[in-house]
């Protein structure tokens, strides 16, 4: 049985990140966009875990924990914003919030 390669882990992280990015790009619903951003953050966390595992060091996990923390904060603020947008604009369409357009 051959060893698991670090490259495979990183490729998985990259693929998940890209899927998250596609999600952000193609969805107009702002909740979907937020969820997609979560996927991207998680993918970044995966990359750290893979790297940490490769060197058998705890730093990767520490970084994952930081990302986790940030994701939690981000999601709480993001959801509060979504609530406000829905309250003000009566829609979840991200394109509707374009009053600042040039």
């Amino acid at each position: 049985m051959s060893e698991l390669q670090a490259t495979s882990g990183l490729l998985l992280a990259g693929t998940l990140f890209m899927l998250g990015l596609i999600g952000v790009l193609i969805r107009r619903n702002i909740i979907f966009m937020l969820v997609s951003v979560e996927i991207m953050l998680n993918a970044a966390g995966l990359a750290f875990i893979v790297a940490g595992s490769k060197w058998a060091q705890p730093d990767g996990q520490v970084m994952f924990i930081f990302i986790l923390t940030m994701a939690a904060a981000e999601v709480s603020v993001g959801l509060a914003l979504i609530l406000q947008i829905h309250h003000q604009l009566k829609t979840l369409d991200s394109d509707a919030a374009n009053t600042m357009k040039g």
């Binding site: 990015l21 790009l25 394109d95 919030a97 040039g102």
Partner: peptide, 18 residues
Amino acid sequence: LLSYTQSGILRWYIMGIV
């Protein structure tokens, strides 16, 4: 020219980043 890019559509901005 650049003020056209300020469309207010979030996904365009992300497209720029991509």
